[in-house]
């Protein structure tokens, strides 16, 4: 893998730091008038998700991390691992542990397509699409025709996520939901 110098650090660059793959968020060059230059760098540890703030001497290098994104279809959960298949035509299958799917866990639906961040051939994290369509499996009975009062109630979706929905929503309705905010968007006509 190539090495990158501090002057090449920019948002999105993936590097190895203390044995973990990291994504650079910000890189600020600082230098007192007549003094030595440093780079103050914010990185996200792609394994733990934690943000690191580090300071490097300008000109120091870090090894690039072999991190790539792949679109993968969710197949099934065997009780321990979550299995995905690459959609690039290779039919390559990978299994991800609960850690890696943590952020997408509320939205998993078989045959849907997810973004899987791969590091050295193993999944680091799974991201759900921004919008998903899922059926309601639990909610209070709908108040038919109430599309105007603006009231809400909780509804549980087939994936397990609980979202606030308008009062007219009924069990079996398929809803479009924003996975980033858990916000109900609309009912989907099937």
């Amino acid at each position: 893998m190539a090495y990158f110098s501090t002057s090449e650090f920019r948002g999105g660059l993936k590097v190895m730091l203390d044995g973990d793959p990291c994504s650079i968020l910000e890189n600020e060059f600082v230098k007192p008038g007549k003094g030595q230059a440093f780079n103050r760098v914010r990185l996200r540890n792609l394994r733990s998700g934690r943000i690191w703030e580090r300071t490097f001497k300008s000109g120091e290098t870090l090894e690039g991390a072999d991190v790539s994104e792949a679109s993968m279809e969710y197949l099934y959960n065997d009780g321990e691992f979550y299995h995905f298949m690459n959609t690039d035509g290779s039919f390559e299958q990978i299994s991800a542990d609960k850690n890696a799917v943590a952020e997408a866990l509320d939205w998993l639906k078989e045959q849907d397509i997810y973004t899987v961040l791969m590091w050295n051939g193993a999944p680091l994290s799974v991201t759900a699409p921004n919008f998903v369509e899922l059926p309601v499996v639990e909610t209070d009975p709908g108040i038919r025709g109430d599309t105007a009062t603006g009231g809400t109630k909780p509804a549980k979706l087939s994936s397990g996520a609980v979202v606030k929905v308008p009062l007219f929503v009924e069990i079996g309705d398929v809803l479009r939901v924003d996975t980033r905010t858990y916000e109900y968007q609309n009912r989907v006509k099937k």
Binding site: V30, K31, P32, G35, Q36, F38, R40, T55, K57
Partner: peptide, 14 residues
């Protein structure tokens, strides 16, 4: 020493 002073100044004082 100067490198230490420089980074302390840049990061925490300036």
């Amino acid at each position: 020493r100067d490198a230490c002073l420089d980074v302390l100044y840049s990061a925490l004082i300036e």
